[in-house]
Amino acid sequence: MFELRRLRLLHELALRGTLAAVADALSYSPSTISQQLAQLERDAGVPLLIPDGRRVRLTEHGVALAAHASRALELEEQIRGELESLQAGIAPVRVAVLQTAAQAILPVALTLLADREPRLRVEIAEVPPEDGLFELSAGGFDLVIAEQYPGHTRAHRAGLEREMLGSDPIRLALPPDDPAGGVAELRDRAWVMEPAGTAARQWAVQQCRAAGFEPDIRFEIADLTAQVRLIAAGRAVGVLPDLVWADLDPPVRLLDLPGDPAREIFTAARQSSMSRGGIRAVRTALRDAFDARSSAARPSTAG
Rank of each mutant, 00 (worst) to 15 (best):
L106C: 06
R119N: 09
A88T: 09
P30C: 07
I33Q: 01
E126R: 09
Q36A: 05
A72P: 00
A101C: 09
P47L: 05
L106F: 02
L37N: 06
L86W: 05
A67K: 05
L40G: 01
R94K: 13
T59K: 08
R71C: 01
V63E: 14
Q87V: 13
R94E: 09
G62P: 05
L26G: 02
L120V: 05
L58P: 02
A25G: 07
L10S: 08
L58R: 07
A14I: 08
E126W: 00
E60D: 13
R121C: 05
T111Q: 12
G62C: 10
R55L: 10
A21N: 01
Q36K: 08
L106W: 09
P107T: 02
R80Q: 15
A72M: 10
A38G: 12
I90L: 15
Y28L: 11
S34K: 14
V63N: 09
L48V: 03
Y28D: 04
A20K: 11
L40E: 02
A91Q: 10
R42F: 00
E77L: 13
L112E: 05
R94C: 11
L15H: 12
S70A: 15
Q103S: 15
D52F: 14
L9C: 06
Q39E: 14
L19I: 13
R42T: 00
L4C: 05
A64G: 00
T32R: 13
A21V: 07
Q78C: 05
L4P: 04
L106E: 01
T100Y: 07
G53T: 10
E82K: 14
Q36P: 01
A20D: 14
R94G: 09
S34L: 13
A21G: 03
T32H: 14
G81D: 06
R80A: 15
Q36M: 08
Q39M: 15
A114K: 12
Q99D: 09
A101V: 12
V63D: 10
A20Y: 11
D24P: 04
L113K: 08
I50T: 14
S27I: 12
H61Q: 11
V97R: 04
L110N: 00
A72H: 05
P92L: 01
T32Q: 11
R54P: 00
R42K: 08
Q39D: 10
V122C: 06
D115W: 03
A102M: 12
E117Q: 12
I105H: 03
A69P: 03
R80Y: 11
L4E: 09
R80T: 13
I105P: 00
R6C: 04
D52S: 15
V22W: 03
V95P: 02
D24K: 15
Q78P: 00
R6L: 01
V22Q: 03
R54Y: 07
D52C: 14
P30K: 06
A23N: 10
Q35T: 12
I50Y: 07
G45I: 05
E74V: 01
S31P: 03
G17V: 14
Q36E: 04
R8D: 01
T18F: 07
L83C: 11
A14W: 07
L120W: 03
V97Q: 07
D24A: 14
A88K: 01
T111Y: 02
V93G: 08
L106H: 02
E76L: 14
E12A: 11
H61N: 15
R116S: 15
